[in-house]
Design a protein around this nucleic acid. Sequence first.
DNA 1: CTGACGATTCACT
DNA 2: GTGAATCGTCAGC
Length: 203
Amino acid sequence: MNKLPYDFYCRNSVTLIARELLGKVLVTQLDGVLTSGRIVETEAYNGIVDKASHAWNDRRTNRTEVMYKEGGHAYVYLCYGIHYLFNVVTNKPGIPNAVLVRAIEPLEGITLMQQRKKSSGPLKSLGAGPGNVARSLGLTTLHSGLTLFEDSLYIADDGFRVKRSEIVAGPRIGVDYAGEDALLPYRFFIKGNPFVSGKKQPA
DNA sequence: CTGACGATTCACT
DNA sequence: GTGAATCGTCAGC
C-alpha cells in the first residue's frame, strides 16, 4: 500500500488534513503481526490558539514536545490512567498541530484486536472511540515520537474515496473545559458509518 | 515531593 | 444515568 508522504502532513491546515484522513488506512505491524483499520472519525487540535489542545498557549513540556516536530510524527499519550490516545502531528516544525484519530473500521488482524481487548463484544467496540483505536492497534506511549514512515507504523491510501457529501463536521467530544473553542467544528466523521463513536447518527 | 486531574471506557443501577 | 478504574503529567510548594 502507498504510505502517505511527508508532504501530506506538513501542510498548514490541520482541519484540512483531519478531513482528508477520513477513508485512509491506519496500519501497525508489531511483533510481526499486522493490524489495520480505515479511519472514519478524526478531530483537529489547532496548536497554541486552541484551548482544547495540550499545546494551548504554547505549553511546551516534555509530553507535548512531539507536537512541535514536523508533520508525520505520532503523538500517543495516556488519558485517565487507562487509555492511550493516538494523534498525528501536522504542520511545520515549531507549530504544534495534531489530529486525533477517534474511530476506525477494523480491516486486518481482527483476531489480534479481540485478544488485545481481552473480552468479546461487538466488532464496533474494537474501533469506536480513541481509547479503543489505540488499544486495538497495540499503540502505547512507547510509540509516541515515531514517524508514520516506519514499517511498523504508517497511514496508507488504498484508493478508497469518501464523497465530500458524506463528510460531516461538528463540535469535538470531551472538551467542554475549552470554553468557546469546544464549539468549533473540528470533529470530522463519515456520515452513517457504523463505526463512528457516540450515538447513532441520523441517516 | 505532593496533590489534582484528564482529548475515556465499561459495568452496573 | 452514574461512578469506578488508574497513573503520567504538571503546577505549586
